[in-house]
Design a protein around this nucleic acid. Structure first.
Lengths: 348, 348
DNA sequence: CCAGTCCCTGTTAGCGCTAACATCCCGGCG
DNA sequence: CGCCGGGATGTTAGCGCTAACAGGGACTGG
């Protein structure tokens, strides 16, 4: 291996010496400046390669004010969605030549947010990406004023500030529409927590789609993302169904709740899709392997990350950019099917 | 708000001017140097507070060579474990006054690893934490030589290099022992992928515990972490059980496979814990809500992160430190119970 | 044939900070 | 009473890099 020598930190003038030019010429080559003779450029490039030189980011940051680093703040990275968002963001940032610094807030207070942004400022990150699906986080974000360019990653829809998101409303409509297309008279809905914008958007999509076909909108059941709350909803729905209510299709705001609901239905002797059709949201890795494999809505986190980085880079370049929310896709598996033949009020 | 003025970047001499001292004295206060008069120190501290000043990390890094940033490399952050490890690490790093930069490798090649470490080097991170549960990642790591202090986060056990991990062997023993204690004659095991050190360690723990009580060790079934492979294993086990084999307890290398197995058993008319006891590994958020709630082994990722950071900081300070692997804990829920009364070769 | 121009390259300054050295002032001791 | 030691503070240099300017050679046009 040539690169590893006595391992003293390599600097630009080492490269310059080897290529027989000044360090400034090396800098020009590295930064792609136009006025460098092709032969010189080549010599410098070879020296860089041979030495395995990498410019020092700190020195660069000091003079340019840019670190080519993006900061990512999130409150809650435990759920599948946020974790995937992080991965998508990192990948997109790296593809664009940026690094990603991560801060996970312990709590969604303005103080914690302020601290995180301060740290990013001190680190001279070029911009901050904030995950803002919960109202607390959004509020904390708004309370904090920062000179840093900021892009939020959140539920899609009408966005006052620079933001990217997956179109939650469209996803919910897709799910609802699928159920309606199968012949179900209406669709019941189990919501996510009320303080989540995504959860509210999914309610809206569901309601909109029902209204679009003139179907009645039954009252929602309220969950909190956990399988346990889905289980509860399942028990209640099963009881109501046994009492004669016409319940043939349920759309849940996420897959974990669908998992709980499926378990509860099963305990009550009801199976999907023969007795009830079930649709979730998220496409957890487990979703295809539930019994039955779950029909669900997938969000493209890789694309989300790509757009977030694109948006942030555009802002950095002073361009205004308006991105449409990322469209989700419906994955039809086996938990949904046509209306059971003997459904209570059989056809009118 | 005082801090926000015309928002020109605040520098050390601004603070110095306000406190009526030289910028060097400000530096001394910030870095906790001893020889500063108490009154002066206080004046400077007030000025810092009033201005909302934060020292510029890049400038600092340039002169000290330290950014108080740690780099984290992982190949695969999609699974629950790795994601939790990241969160634990970030929290611990932040608590110690460090920031965390993250790189997710697209593939576990030496080249990708080399690139990630190069980027971290250029960024002047103080040290690198690498997630190395897969052999590919470990190998890639070993092929790459880096001057950066490096700590691996991996399956516990005998560790040649500085590393922290959860004691997988102990976890598997806990699970197996629990089943044995319930009166099961032996325990069947569904493994994870062969190229995962964690999976192999879990096999070892299972085998060791069986040997410790002189129980026979049935041949393993091989899975790959996915619920689907657990489902397959469930089908096979159910068939063998129906054929008269004495199968009353199964320990699976993770919860997702347990989920699949439970589904398969259910389809075959077998239920946990009455027909078969089932134990998983990981304690997914879903685990308490499966039917039945899953007995499993939990890994303490927060503690893991804390130890990783502790170890890395010790190395940075030149201290050798040998940390024991983190002990996992067994969570007993409802998927395990005593041996079914009518089990095939009933007692001897 | 010389000024004007353009391209290539080198030299110099300085980003914001810390380390090393210089300075000042005070009290104590020979 | 002068000198010395040491704590508190200021001054200077330089970390590795890029921006701005300076210079020199080749080429053009008058």
């Amino acid at each position: 291996m040539e690169p590893e020598g006595p391992s003293r930190a390599l600097v630009m003038s080492d490269v310059a010496a080897r290529a027989g030019v000044s360090h400034q010429t090396v800098s020009r080559v590295i930064n792609g400046h136009p006025n460098v003779a092709p032969r010189t450029r080549e010599r410098v490039e070879r020296a860089i390669r041979e030495l395995g030189y990498r410019p020092n980011t700190a020195a660069r940051a000091l003079v340019t004010g840019s670190t080519r680093t993006l900061g990512f703040v999130a409150v809650n990275i435990n759920q599948y969605g946020p974790a995937q968002t992080l991965v998508g963001l990192e990948r997109a940032a790296r593809a664009a030549g940026y690094s990603l610094g991560v801060t996970v807030l312990d709590e969604a207070t303005a103080e914690a947010m302020r601290d995180a942004l301060d740290r990013f400022t001190a680190q001279s990150v070029d911009a901050v990406l904030a995950l803002a699906t919960y109202d607390d986080a959004v509020e904390a974000l708004h309370q904090v004023h920062t000179p840093l360019p900021l892009v939020t990653v959140q539920s899609g829809g009408a966005l006052e500030e620079p933001a990217v998101g997956v179109d939650q409303v469209a996803g919910a409509r897709l799910a609802t529409r699928h159920l309606l297309d199968l012949g179900h008279r209406t669709v019941h809905h189990v919501t996510g927590p009320a303080d989540s914008k995504e959860a509210r958007d999914r309610v809206e999509g569901w309601r909109t789609e029902l209204a679009a076909v003139g179907a009645p909108a039954p009252e929602c059941l309220h969950g909190d993302w956990t399988p346990s709350s889905g289980y509860e909803a399942g028990r209640r729905l099963a009881a109501r169904k046994r009492a004669g209510e016409d319940i043939t299709a349920v759309f849940l705001a996420n897959d974990q709740m669908a998992l709980g609901l499926l378990a509860a239905l099963h305990e009550e002797g009801l199976e999907a899709p023969c007795d009830v059709s079930v649709v979730g949201f998220d496409d957890l890795p487990e979703a295809p392997y539930l019994t039955p494999p779950l029909t669900t809505v997938r969000q493209d986190f890789a694309e989300l990350g790509r757009r977030a980085v694109e948006l942030v880079l555009a802002r950095l370049a002073g361009r205004e950019l308006h991105l449409q929310p990322v469209p989700p896709v419906l994955l039809i598996r086996s938990s949904t099917g046509p209306v059971p033949v003997g459904s209570t009020p059989a056809g009118v």
